[in-house]
Amino acid sequence: MLNLFGRSQSRDVAKNRLRNVLAHDRADTSPEFMEHLRNDVMRIVSEYVEVGGQGVDLQLQSVEDHVALVANIPVKQLRRRGRQGNN
């Protein structure tokens, strides 16, 4: 919501800043969190592509006013059949 002068209301600004900072805090405070996330993502991804061993990079990044999950996964080759085996 914008106020009369076109600035967003401080309540909304506070909420967004909090969401942002908590996304980082929560990932930081439990290293297992990122580890679990990485493992699960890799499990699914490797059903579609053959992942190129080392160098998998997965992190939470602040992008302007939101948090992004950024993944950089080296691919050796695509699997001919996806996980359902029908494409």
Binding site: M1, N3, Q9, S10, R11, D12, A14, K15, L18, R19, L22
Partner: peptide, 16 residues
Amino acid sequence: MVRKGDMMSVDDIVDI
């Protein structure tokens, strides 16, 4: 202040 949009509401905090 919550009504004016200048303070987070209880729902905002509970939600977060």
